[in-house]
């Protein structure tokens, strides 16, 4: 699953640690989500969406869904 977390964070000038603190998770978790090595739980995805004031689907993209839609 791809996401725009790094872009949204950069737009606000936040470090990974600062974002981690706002989300109440570890910096490693933020990094792993950004590089696509870890998919957050639904509650965390909602917290991220709330923090950036955007719907979940505007931040996280399901590649499989996109490929199916393209076909």
């Amino acid at each position: 699953m791809n996401n725009r977390l790094r872009v949204l964070r950069a737009e606000r000038g936040w470090s990974q640690a600062a974002l981690a603190e706002r989300l109440d998770v570890s910096r490693q978790t933020v990094n792993a989500i950004e590089v696509g090595k870890y998919d957050p739980s639904l509650p965390l995805a909602f917290r991220i969406a709330r923090l950036f004031g955007q719907p979940i689907e505007a931040i996280f993209h399901d590649e499989e869904l996109r490929d199916n839609a393209a076909q």
Binding site: A17, A18, A20, D24, V25, S26, Q28
Partner: peptide, 12 residues
């Protein structure tokens, strides 16, 4: 808010 105060070594 900068994350330096409470996120030392990446842990919460």
């Amino acid at each position: 808010a900068s994350g330096l105060g409470t996120c030392f070594l990446g842990q919460t």
